[in-house]
Design a binder for these strands. Structure first.
Lengths: 213, 213
DNA sequence: GTCTATATTGAGATAGAC
DNA sequence: GTCTATCTCAATATAGAC
């Protein structure tokens, strides 16, 4: 609700410390279960400081969301100027997105819990916009690839979902089983499965003709 | 914490009403943000009734989780006796899982928010066990399929993740965009993309040789 | 088993001094 | 801008009557 400090900034970096602290707390306990007290204590300040800079608990949450989406938007923006085959460009963006996520696990967990989970008293914000933008980007590349003879796809959406599914699964593994997390190479192989398919040549034409066991 | 009623059950169905009410509230507001008061009011009872039957807010949550996992376990159990090609069996189980999810959206959202999101003061419980069991089931079918010449896969895990990713994406769409939700047929086509791949024949051998644009 | 009434704790947020 | 001290409210949980 409040604007950034205007007159004198005696404690530079308070805002950043508060953001970092909020990410950490939201990540460990969830938005609703994390208290303002815990956030400010970890940031080494008192409650009024948070309310002065961000207006409310929801205010600091929204600031986090905006920060995350700006980063993603920038990635998409740069990717729309990338070069190469459709597959190259998709693989490149997926690698960058995965890398960004890997570097922002706590923030991603917080965002996901609100986007996919129940609203915990905070609005979903512009998360939809970002999701749609990403989907459209992938779909465009797929259409281009098909027109260029690079892909054979009946329905662009199907391929889009299969690809996004592969990326999501890598992210989710990172979130809930860091020990089993996929590497960049692993992800590229999984994505490669989608591009190439796993059915053997003989098994493909007669779609359900594989032998019984 | 408490056992089911032992002596006299004057209000049959209270437990079920409480469970249903809890699912609904957890779904709409999240575990932490949903109050016991709201649960019991929707169930038409008072607070002590909940504490009598389930011991605590966490107790009723755990009861929900157990209920959900039992259903999933049963699905897996039946699927391990299914017949047909590996692809047939995988597609069949995916269809059943997707159907179960579609019929349990609120509960699934609650489970996911705890499994993938921050712990909101409740333990994750046995969710891991179920996930691993599902992954192992798929992996087994893939190995069988490869041994039978049905698939050509270098790394079974890659195909497993691509397939599970497709199922996840269908579930997640259902959760956060019911309007865009995939049908059973849609899901089978997306899964089909993973089985068959989308790369055209000429584009496949030289993996990065597609033309520049 | 289910109620009314209440104990107790901690939450989000703010007033006002400096 | 940041503090101390405090307001207000709603949360989980329980005591004890019926």
């Amino acid at each position: 609700m409040n604007k950034p400090p205007e007159k004198a900034p005696p404690d530079p970096g308070v805002r950043e410390r508060l953001l970092a602290s909020a990410i950490d707390c939201f990540d460990r306990k969830g938005y609703a279960a994390c208290s303002v007290r815990e956030i400010v204590e970890a940031a080494g300040v008192t409650k009024p400081v948070l309310y002065y800079h961000y207006g409310s608990k929801e205010g600091i949450f929204n600031a986090l969301m905006r920060q995350a989406m700006d980063q993603f938007d920038e990635l998409l923006e740069r990717a729309s100027h990338s070069e190469g085959s459709a597959r190259d460009r998709i693989e490149k963006l997926f690698g960058e997105v995965f890398d960004l996520f890997k570097r922002s696990i706590p923030l991603v967990r917080v965002m996901n819990s609100i986007y996919y989970g129940p609203p915990q008293g905070v609005p979903r914000g512009d998360a939809d916009r970002v999701h749609f933008a990403f989907q459209e980007w992938v779909k465009k590349r797929l259409v281009e690839g098909r027109n260029a003879g690079e892909f054979k796809i009946a329905k662009t959406e199907d391929a889009m979902w299969a690809l996004i599914g592969a990326l999501n699964v890598a992210t989710e593994l990172e979130l809930c089983h860091p020990d089993l997390a996929l590497t960049q190479k692993d992800l590229q192989r999984v994505v490669g499965v989608v591009f190439d398919g796993i059915a053997s040549e003989e098994g493909r034409a007669p779609r359900r003709a594989a032998k019984r066991r």
